[in-house]
Simulated assay, not measured.
Amino acid sequence: MKDYIKRHIPMTSLVLGTIGLLYGALYPTTAHAMHIMEGMLPPVWCIFWFAVSAPFFIYGLYRMRKIVDSTQQNAKIMLALCGAFVFVLSSLKMPSVTGSCSHPTGVGLGTVMFGPGVMSVLGVIVLLFQALLLAHGGLTTLGANCFSMTIVGPFVGFGVWKLCRAFKVNRSVSLFLCAMLADWSTYVTTSFQLAIVFPDPSSGVVGAAIKFLGIYAITQIPLAIAEGFLTVIVYNLVISNNLWKETALQ
């Protein structure tokens, strides 16, 4: 069983990634998505989010270099698996309300396996592919999307994971909470990013944030729960077949 999974996980990742790419190309959606679309942010805010995200990206490169150079068994394969997981899940755009859409993020798996730092690099790669090939997100909004999905999400998820494990919470429950709250924190961050730029005329930034949160919540809450269960299934398969150690390279 172990040899079978070793042989087939890279191929499965490639197949899933291809399916996600074809799905997005064949069924594009023009919408105010959880990824902030091209042109929605003024230049000053685009520059601001790039500047805020840059230190995390540099740290992520350092972490990725350590992973690639490590002697940990299956490190590169698991890194590719985590990247494919983020790409496929975050490409599944689900129609929401008022012309918006929601999607899972997939960052919980890589966060638990490698720590939150490396997710900023994997996230930039994924977001670039989606912006260029799937019309999902944008290049000028790359910094903002990276900050919400691959910085805030993973760091929140990692904090939840470590806290749960410190209190001896069951591994599957800890992972479920990590993935679910990483997803929710992403959509909360995106809502505030949009609210700052588009404040409500009467209730200001807070009122606008509440409206954006309400728009996403209808689909994002159940999606995050489903993502949590899927992340648990994938992670437990990897661990139970001795393809990865729980504390390796975090």
Results as ranks from 00 to 15, higher is better:
65 R>Y: 08
65 R>G: 04
66 K>W: 07
66 K>Q: 12
67 I>M: 03
68 V>N: 02
68 V>S: 09
69 D>L: 00
70 S>I: 01
71 T>M: 01
72 Q>N: 02
73 Q>K: 09
74 N>Y: 08
74 N>E: 09
74 N>P: 05
74 N>S: 08
75 A>K: 03
75 A>S: 07
75 A>F: 03
75 A>T: 13
76 K>T: 12
76 K>E: 13
77 I>E: 08
77 I>D: 08
77 I>N: 08
78 M>C: 07
79 L>D: 05
79 L>N: 00
81 L>V: 13
81 L>Y: 11
82 C>N: 05
82 C>G: 01
83 G>W: 00
84 A>I: 05
85 F>Q: 03
86 V>K: 04
86 V>A: 04
86 V>M: 11
87 F>V: 02
87 F>P: 01
88 V>T: 04
88 V>G: 04
88 V>Y: 04
90 S>Q: 08
90 S>E: 10
91 S>M: 03
92 L>N: 04
92 L>K: 07
92 L>D: 03
93 K>Y: 12
93 K>F: 05
94 M>K: 11
94 M>T: 15
94 M>P: 07
95 P>G: 10
95 P>Q: 12
97 V>I: 12
97 V>M: 11
97 V>K: 12
97 V>N: 05
98 T>L: 12
99 G>A: 10
99 G>K: 09
99 G>H: 07
99 G>F: 06
101 C>A: 12
102 S>G: 09
102 S>C: 10
103 H>W: 09
104 P>A: 15
105 T>A: 15
107 V>G: 08
108 G>E: 15
109 L>H: 14
110 G>V: 04
110 G>R: 05
111 T>E: 10
112 V>G: 10
113 M>D: 14
115 G>T: 15
115 G>K: 12
115 G>W: 15
115 G>A: 14
115 G>E: 11
116 P>R: 13
116 P>L: 06
117 G>I: 15
117 G>Q: 14
117 G>V: 11
119 M>F: 15
120 S>Y: 11
120 S>L: 10
120 S>I: 09
120 S>N: 14
121 V>P: 06
121 V>K: 08
124 V>P: 06
126 V>H: 00
126 V>Q: 00
126 V>T: 00
127 L>I: 00
127 L>P: 00
127 L>S: 00
128 L>C: 11
128 L>M: 12
128 L>A: 14
128 L>E: 15
130 Q>Y: 01
130 Q>W: 02
130 Q>C: 01
131 A>P: 02
131 A>S: 05
133 L>Q: 04
133 L>S: 12
133 L>H: 08
133 L>G: 13
134 L>T: 04
134 L>C: 02
134 L>H: 01
134 L>V: 03
135 A>W: 09
135 A>S: 14
135 A>G: 15
136 H>Y: 12
136 H>P: 10
137 G>F: 02
137 G>S: 05
137 G>L: 05
138 G>R: 07
138 G>K: 06
139 L>G: 11
140 T>D: 15
140 T>L: 15
141 T>Q: 14
141 T>R: 11
141 T>A: 12
142 L>N: 03
142 L>T: 03
142 L>F: 07
143 G>I: 05
144 A>F: 06
146 C>P: 02
146 C>L: 15
146 C>W: 02
146 C>S: 09
147 F>K: 03
147 F>L: 04
148 S>T: 09
148 S>R: 02
148 S>H: 07
149 M>R: 04
149 M>K: 03
150 T>Q: 07
150 T>E: 05
151 I>C: 07
152 V>Y: 00
152 V>S: 02
153 G>V: 09
